[in-house]
């Protein structure tokens, strides 16, 4: 991507799908406008016409936030044990994982590691929607807990960028327990007096919303991001009426008091760095 050159010393895998789709023009999902790719990338994949923030990968998210060349990935090779030996109508979960790894070039739904934001050392975990809808399973849960462990060990802040459909059904109860596990570890982080900034991006729903995403010391959202616990279709079926316009958006959650602030992508890094400094983090 044009807005950052990929430094040699990071070990991030960029999404294959993205590499393949580098055409000359991009159509904005928000307004349908066709935008010249160079402009699109320079604008960090935010539509210059309507301000729609297109979803970006975990690695792009990390490169966007971290100082160039400072990110070091950790626990890159953790893999699920397929605790339920799960199969659905499309076949075994194990095969789905193998296919997803080959298709996306990702290894799991979370990329975690250490890096610096404007010189401030932080531990970061970023979710990638391309990997089974960014679902939270045993590997994602463990990576987040290890991220918090490192933060406690080195006395650093934790940043988690969420982008997920929720818990991973293929891991059943084990994925549900990752909600308890990650939230419990954030309790340990809190007891250690260290800050946690939760960044919510489109979409953040289900079990991720009902665990770490919603209990940041500071919760920051990207404009227009869909954020909620229950899916819109489920709610409509329950209450038997259409949901109001703009329900479950970042803006809605700020109004209701569940998000601190909305920050456009271009300002995200500098604003997060500033917040960290207010919370006592030093470069």
């Amino acid at each position: 991507m044009a807005w950052f050159s990929k430094p040699k010393y990071t070990v991030l895998a960029s999404s294959k799908k993205e590499q393949q789709s580098r055409n000359l023009w991009t159509k904005c999902d928000g307004c349908g406008e066709t935008i010249y790719n160079k402009e699109w990338e320079e604008n960090l994949r935010v539509c210059p016409k309507c301000g729609h923030h297109q979803r970006i990968s975990a690695s792009d998210r990390i490169l966007l936030l971290m100082d160039e060349g400072t990110f070091r990935e950790e626990d890159a090779y953790l893999r699920t044990t397929d605790p339920l030996a799960f199969s659905d109508s499309k076949g075994p979960y194990r095969e789905k994982i193998t296919v997803t790894i080959a298709k996306t070039g990702l290894r799991e739904s979370v990329i975690a590691g250490s890096g610096r934001i404007e010189g401030i050392p932080v531990e970061i975990a970023a979710m990638d929607f391309e990997f089974l809808g960014g679902s939270l399973g045993s590997v994602a849960g463990e990576k987040i807990c290890r991220t918090i462990d490192r933060a406690i060990r080195h006395k650093r802040a934790v940043i988690i960028t969420s982008c997920s459909g929720g818990a991973r059904m293929h891991e059943g109860i084990v994925s549900l327990m990752q909600m308890a596990k990650t939230s419990a570890w954030l309790g340990k982080l809190k007891a250690a007096g260290l800050p946690f900034i939760s960044i919510l991006t489109h979409p953040t729903t289900g079990g991720v919303t009902a665990s770490y995403a919603s209990i940041g010391d500071i919760i920051v959202a990207e404009p227009g991001a869909l954020i909620g616990f229950a899916g819109a279709r489920v709610i409509e079926q329950t209450i038997r009426q259409k949901l109001p316009e703009g329900f479950q958006t970042a803006e809605f959650l700020v109004e209701r008091g569940f998000v601190d602030l909305i920050v456009p992508r271009k300002e995200m890094k500098s604003r997060i760095a500033k917040l960290l400094r207010y919370l006592g983090c030093k470069a």
């Binding site: 626990d75 090779y77 953790l78 893999r79 699920t80 044990t81 605790p83 399973g137 045993s138 590997v139 849960g141 463990e142 807990c145 891991e171 084990v174 994925s175 327990m177 990752q178 308890a180 596990k181 419990a184 570890w185």
Partner: peptide
């Protein structure tokens, strides 16, 4: 809680 969902490394 931490032990639930062991992973392979």
């Amino acid at each position: 809680i931490r032990r639930i969902g062991p992973v392979l490394d």
